[in-house]
């Protein structure tokens, strides 16, 4: 019973972070600032959702697999984000700054 409530809370927090990640992806002005909401999804969103799923799992194998998914996400997502940011910078994309607000998106 307690476990049910805890997993409800965890899944609700995870869903909130997932939605915030999606909204941030739309609202942020340029690529580099969009990466930060995407990072919320990769860590906090996925973490809380999978924690809620783990609390609902009735088999330890299921729980272990969910934990393994989270570990893989934790390893791969920063590397992918780093590679993306590095490639974009090498390609000559200039990060949006407050002073260049008038120029609009480049």
């Amino acid at each position: 019973m307690i476990l049910d409530i805890l997993s409800w809370i965890s899944i609700a927090i995870g869903a909130y972070f997932v939605l915030v990640g999606g909204i941030g992806l739309i609202r942020m002005p340029d690529l580099f600032s969009r990466m930060h909401p995407a990072g919320i999804l990769d860590t906090a969103g996925a973490g809380f959702l999978l924690l809620g799923f783990i609390l609902q799992a009735d088999d330890w194998l299921v729980a272990a697999k969910l934990a393994l998914i989270f570990v893989f996400l934790l390893f791969t997502s920063p590397v992918a984000t780093h590679a993306l940011a590095h490639a974009a910078l090498l390609d000559g994309l200039k990060p949006w700054t407050k002073s260049r607000k008038k120029d609009g998106e480049s």
Binding site: I40, T43, P78
Partner: peptide, 15 residues
């Protein structure tokens, strides 16, 4: 260290 920076929302390591 670099991955921790990227994992923390708000900061991304680029190089």
């Amino acid at each position: 260290y670099a991955n921790s920076i990227t994992l923390t929302p708000g900061t991304v390591s680029t190089d």
